[in-house]
């Protein structure tokens, strides 16, 4: 190269010559062929996990149904697995227990979560948002075992001091705490949905003399409705699958009645109860946790699919 000489560099082979001589060209080709295959195998681990979950649950549940008739499980209203005389495996008491906790959690979380989302997206200044959002993230990052401990040792006693009829294990206290746990989910997903409503639509309404509240109710909320509904459905799914709070604070009494003040049992807390006990491998009780787990899986999957359907089907185009 002329100017290399000009500027006084000592002579060496040109870079192109060195590149031509460098080894590893063949390796490069092999690597380029092999890497995508390896990465594809890695990416299929998540698919295998799903398949593993579904197959595991189905196979063990089928074993369970060879011992307990499927009709007893689906239509039975008594869950008495540990009975010495005749064990009963009717799933409904566990579903009712799960729904009680979920209902209370939803009552707590939906108004608070959406209210907070409206405040953050419509009223709050940038500074407030910068403080509140990380705090909500902290709330979402607290392990559920901590929430469970708090429900059992603080929320329940406080509730008892107002309503003495509430027992030490009940549906209300874990319900409230599960509700608090899912607030960040509703608040942040709903806030995302509302913030993505373009500013000019909002400004259009404000310019007509609307108050911010009217804009929120008549413009932003309807426009972001699909995202808000999806966030609520996802949060409910999370509440259904929540395990540690109910295991610690809801008790272990599967029952069908409408009582919220006494001990109940949810699907998740039953799985925990059996797992920490010593129901031996191969017993009917052992297989029952898979049948319950499968039921739980179906419930949460339906909710998740519903959520993605709602957010896709009813997405607003701006």
């Amino acid at each position: 190269m002329p100017f290399a000489v000009e500027r006084g560099f000592h002579m060496r082979p040109s870079v192109q010559e060195m590149i031509a001589q460098s080894k590893g060209k063949k390796n490069k080709k092999i690597i380029e062929k092999i890497i995508p295959i390896i990465l594809f195998l890695i990416a299929s681990v998540s698919v295998l996990t799903t398949i593993g979950i579904v197959v595991t649950l189905i196979v063990e549940t089928i074993t369970f149904f060879t011992r307990v008739p499927i009709t007893d499980f689906l239509f039975g209203t008594t869950w008495l697995p540990f009975s010495n005389k005749e064990a009963m495996f009717g799933i409904w008491p566990l579903i009712i227990g799960t729904l009680k906790v979920t209902l209370i959690a939803t009552i707590v979380a939906v108004p608070i979560g959406i209210g907070a989302a409206i405040y953050l997206s419509e009223y709050a200044s940038e500074t407030v948002r910068r403080i509140v959002k990380p705090v909500l993230e902290i709330l979402a990052g607290i392990p559920t075992i901590v929430y469970g401990f708090f429900a059992l040792t603080f929320v329940t006693p406080v509730l008892q001091s107002f309503f003495p009829e509430i027992k030490i294990f009940n549906a209300i206290s874990p319900g409230i705490v599960v509700g608090i746990m899912i607030i960040p989910m509703i608040a942040s997903l709903s806030e995302d949905a509302m913030s993505s409503v373009p500013k000019h639509i909002r400004e259009g309404a404000l310019a007509m003399g609307s108050t911010k509240f009217e804009v929120a109710m008549k413009v932003t909320l309807p426009a972001a409705l699909s995202g808000i509904v999806a966030s609520v459905v996802l949060a409910i799914s999370r509440a259904i699958g929540e395990t540690m709070i109910v295991s610690l604070a809801a008790g272990s009494t599967p029952k069908m009645d409408g009582d919220f003040t006494g001990s109940i049992q949810t699907m998740t807390s039953y799985i925990v109860q059996v797992s920490k006990g010593d129901a031996g491998y191969g017993t009917t009780i052992y297989y029952s946790i898979y049948a319950v787990g499968f039921t739980l899986f179906v419930f949460t999957m339906v909710m998740n699919i519903l959520a993605s359907y709602v957010s896709k089907r009813f997405r607003e185009e701006y």
Partner: peptide
């Protein structure tokens, strides 16, 4: 399919992952 699967997997309750771990 892989993408949908990943987002669905994120919604599976942790206790169900326990059942997978126990079996596998």
């Amino acid at each position: 399919f892989i993408r949908t699967n990943i987002s669905n997997l994120a919604g599976v309750p942790s206790v169900v992952f326990g059942l997978l771990g126990l079996t596998i």
